[in-house]
Design a protein around this nucleic acid. Sequence first.
DNA 1: GCCAACGTTGGC
DNA 2: GCCAACGTTGGC
Length: 147
Amino acid sequence: MKNEPDDYSIDNLKKDKTEPWDGIRNYQVRNMIRDDMSIGDMAFFYHSNCDIPGIYGLMTINSKPYPDHTAFNKKAKYYDVKSDVSKPTWLMVDVKYKRKLAKIITLKKLKSEKILSKMRVVQKGNRLSITEVEKKDWEYILSLEKK
DNA sequence: GCCAACGTTGGC
DNA sequence: GCCAACGTTGGC
């Protein structure tokens, strides 16, 4: 799950413990939140659009999907006039801090690993802020932390 | 800051 | 329903 550290980083989450992952305004990602996420699922916290893009920490999904109320707030950055309170377009989940990685797994590193080349996050033109991680890739990435 | 890639919008 | 124009993402 990507976020810009200038906006909200792994250190912010460490301090806050849990946080609503709001601001998703992409249908593919919305569907992933709606259909594919369960409480207790693990996720990587990825820093994007920064000096060193990559995986910085681990967190867990800590809620069921629920309406992203920031879409109803005219003053919010991600206000969406088309999302109706009675039938919300956008959803979010709460995430819970687990730990920071001992070593940042950089995007550069991910790209250099042939075995991970099928991961969406390393593919050209991928713009999804949340992408699925297969179990084998998850485990392989965690093994890189210890190298 | 540049720009490729992609999603969304809206005229037709 | 097509597609040009525009906006956004995010690596570099």
